[in-house]
Simulated scan of single mutants.
Amino acid sequence: MQNLFLDINVLQTLPSSNINRDDTGAPKTAYYGGVVRSRVSSQSWKKASRDDFKARGIESSLRTKKIPSALEKELLNQEPSLNQEDAHAKTLEILKAMGIKVEVDKATGETVTKVLIFMSPGQLRKLADYALNNDKLDIKELKKLGKEDSALDLALYGRMLADSPELNVEAAAQVAHAISTHEIIPEFDYFTAIDDLQPDDTAGAAHLGSIEFNSSTLYRYANVNIRELKENLGDKEDIVSATKEFIKSFVKSMPGGKQNTFANKTLPDYVMICLRQDTPVNLVSAFEQPVSARGKSGYVKPSIEKLEKEFKSSQMFVEDPLVTAILTKFETEIGDKEVNFKQLLDKVSDVLMKAVQDEDDNN
Score class of each variant (00 low, 15 high):
Lys306Asp: 03
Asp51Trp: 02
Val300Trp: 01
Leu75Phe: 04
Ile326Cys: 02
Phe213Gly: 06
Arg220Ser: 04
Cys274Trp: 00
Leu345Met: 13
Thr91Leu: 08
Asp346Trp: 03
Asn282Met: 06
Thr108Ala: 08
Gln198Ser: 13
Gly146Gln: 11
Phe213Val: 02
Leu82Ala: 00
Val102Arg: 00
Ser42Met: 04
Ala286Trp: 05
Leu4Gln: 04
Ser313Val: 12
Val240Arg: 05
Glu288Asn: 06
Asp196Arg: 12
His177Asn: 09
Val115Phe: 09
Ser44Glu: 04
Met119Ile: 14
Pro199Thr: 08
Lys114Phe: 00
Asp51Lys: 11
Ser215Asn: 12
Asn362Ala: 15
Asp189Glu: 15
Lys337His: 08
Thr111Gln: 01
Glu93Met: 03
Val271Tyr: 04
Arg21Leu: 11
Thr332Gly: 08
Lys66Ala: 09
Asn77Gln: 06
Leu71Met: 11
His182Leu: 06
Phe341Tyr: 12
Pro321Leu: 07
Glu170Met: 11
Ser49Met: 15
Leu197Phe: 15
Phe191Ser: 08
Asn232Ala: 05
Ala87Arg: 00
Thr243Arg: 03
Ala178Met: 13
Met254Gln: 14
Ala176Ile: 04
Lys248Gly: 05
Glu170Val: 15
Gly122Trp: 09
Phe317Asn: 05
Glu166Arg: 01
Leu116Met: 13
Val112His: 00
Ser314Gly: 05
Leu218Gly: 00
Asn260Glu: 10
Ser249Trp: 04
Ser314Tyr: 05
Lys347Gly: 01
Leu75Tyr: 02
Phe5Ile: 11
Gly204Asn: 10
Asn363Gly: 08
Leu132Thr: 11
Lys136Trp: 01
Gly158Ile: 08
Leu322Glu: 08
Leu327Asn: 01
Ile179Ala: 02
Ser44Trp: 03
Ala107Phe: 01
Ile326Leu: 14
Leu95Ser: 03
Leu322Ala: 12
Gly234Pro: 10
Lys65His: 10
Glu103Leu: 08
Lys143Pro: 01
Pro290Val: 01
Val323Asp: 01
Ser297Ala: 10
Arg63Ala: 06
Phe118Arg: 12
